[in-house]
Design a protein around this nucleic acid. Sequence first.
DNA 1: CCAGACGTTGTT
DNA 2: GTCTGG
DNA 3: CCAGACGTTGTT
DNA 4: GTCTGG
Length: 288
Amino acid sequence: MALHRGTRVYRNHQLLDGAAVALFPLPMCGRFALHASPEIVAEFLSLDEIDEFPPRYNIAPTQPILIAIGGHQDRPDANRANRSAQLARWGLIPSWVKDASKFPLLINARGETAATKNSFRAAMKYRRCLIPATEFYEWRRTGGGPSEPFLFRPKFGRPFAFAGLMETTIDPDGGEIDTAAIVTTKASGPPADIHDRMPVAIEEGEFERWLDCRDYNPAGVADLIAGSAVRGFEIVRIGTAVNKVMNADPSIQEPVDEHPIRSTGETKTAREADTGSHSDDVDQLKLI
DNA sequence: CCAGACGTTGTT
DNA sequence: GTCTGG
DNA sequence: CCAGACGTTGTT
DNA sequence: GTCTGG
């Protein structure tokens, strides 16, 4: 690990007059939830079948996550995509890695560069996947104080899907291990107030294209990443209980404030529309 | 040619 | 400060 | 992503 | 396996 750490420092800096200076300003998604029923998720992803799974409110790196793969309609009778769901460890391990313990945890892949990186190139070309979720979490770093957690949730009750990359590797015991990472891009709109990076979400109408690695190469899906916007979400500040992975019950999602501090999308939130409470939040309402 | 990295986020 | 575990 | 460890010798 | 640095 010392090697990697040293390398990172070296690559991000350049020696000028003997002093290390940053070459460029280094401007995510590290936690999410999935508590829709398996039936809803299967319908959402057009899966023929799906195993049971429990509701999870605090999914963290290294844990198993549900992913959907496949998608080319190679069955003549298929009007629904030929997809399947399975579990993968969150933290992608490239197939050529000999000792995963000496390799950093790749929970995110930068969408801007993933197609050219050794670690992601093959997955970007051959093993794109979707990662269903019902909410995700982001932390806002404040000056010196503790970071504040925020919940990003769709304004209308439906799951969404992250753009994911999947890889299969062989563990020391000879067993196959499937791993996955979430694709990220530069944050824009309201999410940018929380964090510089955000996960890429794929619209339902584009599931097929993202998953179909036979007919669409990385260039053929680049627009899904570049044009990604986290639309139709509201962003609410939540308590710090989410910080601890052990805290995994629904209460960790309870808002701290009365209203969402931000909303993404074209209109005011459903919640505000229902209650008619515009008030202080309206001027903070920003559109993507 | 061989050796060694292969990544993201964040920080200052 | 840095690494590991979840 | 955050939280929590970060070590050795020896013993049960 | 493939790329970069030396």
